[in-house]
């Protein structure tokens, strides 16, 4: 555990002393905030419309702002931010020669990979916390479902955790950060598209692939439902990528 934390801490340190970190953080926070503003403006005009048709069900702030914010704002920006966080993890070590230091240290490959992964998760968590002003604003200023805030954030974060695990894996395959980022995006896209196929094929395949649908798991969380199958999906996918990374590094070591 000591070694894992040492690697993770160093990763967080290096991220936040690099100027690129502030570009990533700015992209994340600005995108998410602007998206929130857009939703608020849309909601103001929507309320006017709604009031003109009496008797209809009044849509809540949760429906109109919070859920679209989680699904279209927070989730979408992960496509850019997750690869940017994970791309340097192992590829940079290979390029700079620090891999020799890490691999000749008395730590196991799994400890190394978990340390890198934990570091990336912590960076992502810090960025998530930096957007907390938005749900806080909704909770304090309006009447939103706090359960949805909690479950929704958790769901998007678990998705981010899965994407970062894919990113750690991609960064173990190349010493080029750009290639690592592109591979991460490709893997994320693969996961997403496979989920879409799984949903679409439900009717004639009887839903054998439904457990692999990213969209339906995420929607559950955003509806405020904490389903164990969602946890199983995100955690096992993450573990799978961590395992692949470990095998990749070991095969490079023993080649």
């Amino acid at each position: 555990m000591r070694a894992i934390l040492a690697v993770a801490r160093r990763e967080i340190y290096s991220f936040f002393v690099s100027p690129a970190a502030y570009v990533v953080a700015t992209i994340f926070i600005v995108t998410v905030s602007v998206w929130f503003l857009v939703l608020i403006f849309q909601n103001i005009s929507a309320q006017l419309t709604v009031q003109l048709t009496p008797g209809a069900r009044q849509p809540t702030l949760t429906d109109k702002v919070l859920r679209p914010f989680l699904m279209n704002g927070l989730f979408r920006v992960l496509w850019l931010v997750a690869p940017l966080i994970s791309m340097r993890l192992l590829s940079e070590d290979r390029k700079q020669g620090t891999a020799d230091l890490l691999l000749s240290s008395p730590i196991t490959t799994l400890q190394l990979v978990l340390g890198k992964y934990l570091g990336a998760l912590a960076i992502m968590a810090i960025l998530f916390v930096a957007t907390m002003h938005i749900p806080l604003f909704l909770v304090l200023g309006g009447n939103v479902d706090r359960g949805v805030v909690f479950a929704g954030y958790l769901g998007v974060f678990l998705t981010a955790a899965m994407f970062l695990a894919a990113g750690v894996f991609a960064s173990s395959l190349t010493e080029n950060q750009i290639v690592a980022a592109l591979l991460t995006m490709a893997t994320m896209l693969g996961i997403f598209l496979f989920g879409k196929l799984a949903e679409a094929s439900q009717r004639f395949l009887g839903g054998v692939f439904t457990p692999f649908s990213l969209g339906s798991h995420l929607e559950d969380f955003i509806r405020g439902i904490l389903d164990s199958s969602g946890f199983v999906y995100f955690l096992s996918m993450s573990a799978f990528f961590v395992f692949l990374t470990q095998r990749t590094i070991d095969s490079q070591r023993w080649r």
Binding site: R2, A3, S18, Q96, T98, L101, P106, I107
Partner: peptide, 20 residues
């Protein structure tokens, strides 16, 4: 094998921790 963005002392502390 150096982490160029770290200070000398910070880097050596990291290595010491890594090396147990």
């Amino acid at each position: 094998p150096l982490y160029r963005e770290m200070t000398v002392r910070g880097f050596l502390r990291f290595v010491a921790e890594l090396r147990g």
